[in-house]
């Protein structure tokens, strides 16, 4: 029987599924840099971000997704970072944001 052309497919779920995600890399990242957990999502880093003002790179969002085990694309996005260091100047929690960029790139290079 010929395959049916339905004109649509079953949409894939958008939800972050913590049960399905492998949190091992995320745990390693947080173990090496526990201060990343203290992010309060203020967005200062993204507001000052040189790359984020010109591309869709959103540092806050990417590292939050990584902490939830959503690694896909994180490495490529972190490559947008110009390592200018402005984000570290403004972070009210004193997070070594440049260090976070380097750490995520190191841990997730193969994603």
């Amino acid at each position: 029987m010929a395959a049916i052309n339905w004109g649509y497919g079953i949409s894939k779920p958008r939800a972050i599924d913590i049960d399905r995600n492998n949190l091992r890399r995320s745990d390693e990242i947080l173990h090496e840099m526990p201060e990343l957990q203290s992010c309060i999502g203020c967005g200062s880093c993204t507001a000052v971000c040189t790359a984020g003002n010109l591309t869709e790179f959103n540092f806050r969002k990417v590292h939050t997704l990584v902490r939830r085990g959503e690694y896909e694309g994180a490495y490529e996005l972190m490559n947008r970072c110009m390592l200018c260091g402005k984000c570290r100047l403004v972070c009210p929690r004193g997070i070594n944001t440049r260090g976070v960029v380097m750490l995520i790139k190191r841990k997730l290079g193969d994603f």
Partner: peptide, 14 residues
Amino acid sequence: VQANRGYSIANSHK
């Protein structure tokens, strides 16, 4: 609307 059926069926699928 056919264009919307993908997420319509996805609910029953879920």
